[in-house]
């Protein structure tokens, strides 16, 4: 049994799961609170990634530190997007919501192509390519840091939702709309802020993407397809489900990539196969639905 490869596979899977989880968190929040699957979430990640790139290239700001800027920036973008495109369709049938967010996604991808061309953009830092030797396993320093940030992000989100007033309001609204309103929670405002927070989360994961990968106009879309897979795997609107789903996807991709012949080719398709398999077995996703 080749232990080094085995543990390396686990390490790879866990690390990439961190990235996937950070992308899925915002999506989960919006779904949980408002019941909308935001097809354009990936593009918000992409915008975060580009912001990081430009902040780095033009102002020399370290990509991981730039989170302090991209988070509030994307928060504001989220509020703007919510106000003008999401709010009007909150009560529309799911078809409209799907089409609107899909349209938004296409629009933003192409806008990015027009503004910044299609070349892939990388950032390179003093610690890029630095690697840590943990026992039998090699771990990239950047990957480890971004993983730590994802974990921190999730922890912060959980604390927010359970301990802070706004967060509790979001949970209340997600469970019972009318009830919340009756006890004086401003449902509209809560929705808006939830969307803003979700976009801020997207912005942060964009910074992480820029750091450990590279960015180009379609990067968000590819990641969002994986996020959908995770949503479906782990339960819709459920944070611990999102984490579990991320781990399942990350580890599966890693093991297929390492152990299956021609696995590198099949690995990227795992998310699609998983979606199909899971939905056939359990049409409402592994943890059931809250809304339709």
């Amino acid at each position: 049994m080749d232990w080094p490869s085995f543990f390396q596979s686990i390490a790879n899977g866990v690390l990439i799961a961190g990235l996937y989880a950070s992308v899925t968190l915002g999506l989960t929040l919006v779904l949980g609170v408002m019941g909308i699957v935001n097809f354009a979430h990936g593009e918000l990640v992409m915008l975060g990634a580009y912001s990081t790139f430009w902040l780095f290239t033009m102002l020399g700001i370290d990509p991981l530190l730039s989170i302090a800027i991209t988070a509030p920036l994307l928060f504001l973008v989220g509020i703007f997007v919510y106000r003008f495109t999401i709010r009007p369709i909150l009560k529309d049938p799911p078809l409209n919501q799907l089409l609107l967010t899909l349209g938004l996604s296409i629009f933003l991808q192409n806008l990015a192509m027009i503004l910044w061309k299609t070349d892939s953009r990388s950032v390179i830092t003093s610690y890029s390519g630095m690697s840590l030797h943990l026992g039998m396993v090699h771990v990239g320093a950047t990957r480890l840091i971004t993983f730590a940030i994802s974990v921190a992000l999730t922890a912060v989100l959980i604390v927010f939702l359970h301990k802070m007033r706004l967060g509790k309001a979001m949970r209340a609204v997600s469970e019972n709309n009318t009830g919340s309103w009756l006890v004086g929670i401003n449902v509209q405002k809560t929705y808006m802020l939830a969307f803003g927070v979700a976009c801020a989360l997207a912005g942060v994961s964009g910074s992480l993407v820029s750091t450990i990968m590279y960015t180009y106009p379609m990067v968000g879309f590819k990641l969002s397809l994986k996020a959908f897979c995770i949503l479906i795997l782990g339960g819709l609107g459920n944070i611990s489900g999102a984490l579990l789903g991320s781990l399942v996807l990350g580890l599966t991709e890693s093991f297929v990539g390492t152990y299956v012949p021609e696995g590198s080719g099949w690995a990227e398709g795992i998310s699609f196969f998983l979606i199909i398999v899971v939905l056939i077995i359990k049409p409402t996703g592994l943890a059931g639905t809250r809304r339709e």
Partner: peptide, 13 residues
């Protein structure tokens, strides 16, 4: 082996 262009992780390969 072949890989998918745009993959987020080449470490397994």
């Amino acid at each position: 082996e072949r890989f998918k262009s745009g993959s987020s992780d080449f470490t397994p390969m």
